[in-house]
Write a protein that binds this DNA or RNA. Sequence first.
DNA 1: CACTATACATACACAAGGTACGTAAAGGAA
DNA 2: TTCCTTTACGTACCTTGTGTATGTATAGTG
Lengths: 192, 192
Amino acid sequence: MPRASAADAARTAERILQSASTLYATCGYAHVSLDDVAQDAGVTRGAIYHHYLNKKGLFSAVAARLQAQVAAAVVAAAEGAPPSPSSRLRAGSHAFLDTITSSSFVRILLVDAPAVVGWQEWRRLDDENSVTHLREALRNVHVTEALVDVTAAHLSGAMNEAALWIAQHADPEAARAEAHAALDQLLNAYAA
Amino acid sequence: MPRASAADAARTAERILQSASTLYATCGYAHVSLDDVAQDAGVTRGAIYHHYLNKKGLFSAVAARLQAQVAAAVVAAAEGAPPSPSSRLRAGSHAFLDTITSSSFVRILLVDAPAVVGWQEWRRLDDENSVTHLREALRNVHVTEALVDVTAAHLSGAMNEAALWIAQHADPEAARAEAHAALDQLLNAYAA
DNA sequence: CACTATACATACACAAGGTACGTAAAGGAA
DNA sequence: TTCCTTTACGTACCTTGTGTATGTATAGTG
């Protein structure tokens, strides 16, 4: 097999990432072998090991991209909201819930990621992305400084669990509406 | 190797469960082979496959026991509290936080379990144990019926994330105190 | 005292991850 | 143009770990 140009190489790396992303989302990390990914991407395992460190490294790349997408959606929503701190917090939180509920994200980011990359590492990545913004928003709505960290953890956990609850619900759209209502109630408690 | 009596057999099954529990808690499910468990328990893998269906089945047994212990602690605390609905909810919630924070529980129940047994199945087990009580308690403090499910998910997620936050914190005892304070604040929001 | 079911141990088959190595072309440097 | 080095994979092999089939000795039972 002849070799591809640098641009082609980037595209195969991207194809591998895409295949892995959809397979992990539908079947779960443990049930997807590198052969499955390679076959879906139309390459061999050698190509995967060339572009990624190992199976865990491939998953990390997938998770990192998804997390970045979530963070981007949250920031965009917050910036598009009226400039008051509470409405920014509210907009960001609701955007987080809506984005992460997209079925691809739930299983990868909320179920597999903590176990695969380790909770400590995953939490660090989460901090770098969304949670930092969340803490900042909490400070802006005058949450006591000593309680900012715990409160961020509480809110983050609540939203994550809500996302899982929505995804598994028989009527996801109705569930989503309920979750948003409950989230508003929760946010009001902190904003006051 | 001669065969043991029925009572001895139960004890070996128990030793296997104990070994698996501590190994899973310290190293994580994926990094613990059945050989590791067998060696720690002083048996061969044959004994494990005799008492448990497979690796996942062994983990499920471990997780189920831990979850039952958590639920028992929650119920005991709630029954020991003053009979008002809000104080029962509060006592149960704080007991949940304290029990699940014990380091053995965190990794197995909150990190590995969802990925290993599948989130749906894990959630079902969780429902049968603690979450049912939580929903009942929420009804007793007059949470709107339509929001009971979501609110339970929110609270459960918040407490789980808080537990992980405590376990990973540099000063767990200080973190625990903060988490309890924040939890009280959160519960007040719902009880009101 | 047979006889069956239990409680393991042993041995083997197979899948999957990781590694070592091969190879052919791309992208400069001379 | 001609090297030469690096890149971008593919191929083959090794190792680990799970699951299963089978062996075996004893406990329990009629």
